[in-house]
Deep mutational scan, measured.
Amino acid sequence: QTVQFNGLEYHFPNPEEAEKFAKKVAKELGGEVRVKDGRWQID
């Protein structure tokens, strides 16, 4: 599972970890999490 933001990609072994990370980062950055092409993106 991949999380993308600021032009970087973070890879996680399972979707739960990816989701948790994506939501944490979005909260800290005040961004929005969305899934695109099977990847988590933070904008």
Results as ranks from 00 to 15, higher is better:
residue 16 E to I: 10
residue 16 E to H: 09
residue 24 K to A: 12
residue 29 L to G: 05
residue 43 D to S: 13
residue 33 V to I: 12
residue 10 Y to A: 03
residue 18 A to W: 02
residue 8 L to T: 11
residue 1 Q to P: 09
residue 28 E to G: 04
residue 25 V to K: 09
residue 2 T to V: 15
residue 3 V to P: 00
residue 13 P to K: 11
residue 2 T to M: 08
residue 11 H to N: 08
residue 32 E to S: 13
residue 33 V to W: 07
residue 19 E to C: 11
residue 32 E to W: 10
residue 42 I to E: 03
residue 7 G to M: 04
residue 19 E to S: 05
residue 11 H to V: 10
residue 43 D to T: 15
residue 34 R to V: 15
residue 42 I to T: 03
residue 14 N to E: 05
residue 28 E to C: 15
residue 27 K to T: 10
residue 5 F to M: 06
residue 34 R to C: 12
residue 38 G to F: 02
residue 23 K to W: 12
residue 43 D to E: 13
residue 26 A to L: 06
residue 43 D to Y: 15
residue 6 N to F: 08
residue 10 Y to T: 03
residue 9 E to L: 14
residue 39 R to Q: 10
residue 36 K to P: 04
residue 20 K to L: 12
residue 20 K to I: 11
residue 15 P to K: 11
residue 37 D to M: 03
residue 30 G to F: 05
residue 35 V to S: 06
residue 30 G to M: 06
residue 20 K to R: 13
residue 39 R to H: 12
residue 1 Q to W: 15
residue 24 K to E: 12
residue 5 F to P: 00
residue 19 E to G: 04
residue 33 V to L: 11
residue 9 E to I: 15
residue 39 R to L: 14
residue 38 G to Y: 01
residue 43 D to Q: 12
residue 11 H to S: 08
residue 26 A to P: 00
residue 26 A to M: 05
residue 39 R to V: 15
residue 8 L to R: 14
residue 14 N to M: 04
residue 42 I to C: 08
residue 7 G to H: 05
residue 13 P to L: 11
residue 12 F to E: 00
residue 16 E to V: 10
residue 31 G to T: 10
residue 6 N to E: 07
residue 1 Q to H: 15
residue 40 W to I: 06
residue 29 L to H: 12
residue 12 F to G: 00
residue 43 D to F: 15
residue 35 V to D: 05
residue 36 K to Q: 13
residue 43 D to N: 11
residue 4 Q to S: 13
residue 28 E to A: 10
residue 26 A to N: 03
residue 35 V to P: 04
residue 1 Q to K: 10
residue 16 E to M: 11
residue 38 G to W: 01
residue 33 V to S: 04
residue 32 E to R: 11
residue 13 P to A: 11
residue 41 Q to D: 07
residue 43 D to L: 15
residue 36 K to L: 11
residue 7 G to F: 04
residue 14 N to Q: 04
residue 37 D to W: 01
residue 42 I to S: 02
residue 24 K to M: 12
residue 3 V to Q: 01
residue 9 E to H: 08
residue 14 N to A: 05
residue 26 A to T: 05
residue 11 H to Y: 13
residue 20 K to W: 10
residue 41 Q to F: 15
residue 40 W to P: 04
residue 8 L to D: 07
residue 11 H to W: 13
residue 21 F to T: 01
residue 15 P to T: 09
residue 15 P to A: 13
residue 29 L to N: 09
residue 27 K to F: 11
residue 2 T to D: 03
residue 10 Y to V: 06
residue 10 Y to F: 13
residue 3 V to T: 00
residue 1 Q to R: 11
residue 43 D to R: 08
residue 40 W to C: 06
residue 17 E to G: 04
residue 2 T to E: 03
residue 15 P to L: 07
residue 13 P to H: 10
residue 30 G to S: 06
residue 42 I to P: 02
residue 15 P to S: 12
residue 8 L to M: 13
residue 22 A to Y: 03
residue 9 E to F: 13
residue 15 P to I: 10
residue 34 R to D: 06
residue 15 P to R: 12
residue 1 Q to L: 12
residue 38 G to M: 02
residue 5 F to H: 08
residue 17 E to R: 04
residue 8 L to P: 00
residue 24 K to V: 07
residue 29 L to V: 14
residue 1 Q to G: 11
residue 5 F to E: 01
residue 4 Q to E: 14
residue 4 Q to K: 09
residue 31 G to L: 15
residue 8 L to H: 13
residue 6 N to W: 08
residue 28 E to M: 09
residue 36 K to G: 05
residue 41 Q to Y: 15
residue 16 E to C: 11
residue 7 G to S: 05
residue 24 K to S: 09
residue 36 K to S: 11
residue 30 G to A: 05
residue 19 E to L: 09
residue 25 V to E: 03
residue 20 K to A: 14
residue 20 K to T: 11
residue 23 K to H: 13
residue 4 Q to F: 15
residue 22 A to E: 01
residue 10 Y to M: 07
residue 43 D to P: 03
residue 33 V to D: 02
residue 43 D to H: 14
residue 30 G to H: 07
residue 2 T to L: 10
residue 24 K to L: 11
residue 15 P to E: 10
residue 14 N to V: 04
residue 29 L to K: 05
residue 13 P to S: 13
residue 36 K to Y: 08
residue 11 H to R: 09
residue 39 R to S: 08
residue 21 F to C: 14
residue 5 F to D: 01
residue 27 K to R: 09
residue 21 F to E: 02
residue 38 G to A: 03
residue 39 R to N: 09
residue 16 E to P: 03
residue 18 A to Q: 00
residue 27 K to H: 12
residue 18 A to M: 02
residue 10 Y to E: 02
residue 15 P to H: 09
residue 29 L to A: 06
residue 18 A to K: 01
residue 7 G to K: 04
residue 33 V to G: 02
residue 24 K to F: 09
residue 32 E to K: 10
residue 29 L to S: 12
residue 22 A to S: 03
residue 39 R to W: 07
residue 43 D to M: 14
residue 38 G to L: 01
residue 38 G to H: 04
residue 12 F to N: 00
residue 35 V to L: 15
residue 32 E to P: 04
residue 22 A to G: 01
residue 38 G to V: 01
residue 25 V to I: 14
residue 42 I to G: 02
residue 39 R to C: 13
residue 5 F to C: 07
residue 22 A to P: 00
residue 5 F to I: 13
residue 33 V to A: 15
residue 14 N to D: 09
residue 30 G to Y: 05
residue 21 F to M: 01
residue 15 P to V: 11
residue 3 V to M: 03
residue 31 G to V: 15
residue 26 A to V: 06
residue 25 V to A: 06
residue 21 F to K: 00
residue 40 W to G: 02
residue 21 F to S: 00
residue 38 G to I: 01
residue 14 N to S: 14
residue 34 R to S: 14
residue 41 Q to H: 14
residue 21 F to V: 01
residue 23 K to T: 10
residue 37 D to T: 01
residue 40 W to E: 03
residue 11 H to F: 13
residue 15 P to N: 08
residue 40 W to Q: 02
residue 40 W to R: 00
residue 15 P to M: 11
residue 14 N to P: 00
residue 26 A to R: 03
residue 12 F to D: 00
residue 39 R to T: 12
residue 29 L to C: 15
residue 7 G to L: 04
residue 41 Q to T: 15
residue 7 G to I: 02
residue 32 E to L: 09
residue 19 E to H: 07
residue 29 L to F: 14
residue 13 P to M: 09
residue 13 P to R: 10
residue 32 E to H: 12
residue 29 L to E: 05
residue 26 A to F: 05
residue 42 I to Y: 04
residue 7 G to V: 01
residue 13 P to Q: 11
residue 25 V to R: 04
residue 22 A to F: 04
residue 39 R to D: 05
residue 30 G to C: 05
residue 32 E to M: 08
residue 17 E to C: 14
residue 40 W to L: 07
residue 2 T to Y: 11
residue 17 E to D: 11
residue 27 K to L: 13
residue 17 E to M: 10
residue 20 K to E: 12
residue 27 K to S: 11
residue 11 H to D: 05
residue 39 R to A: 11
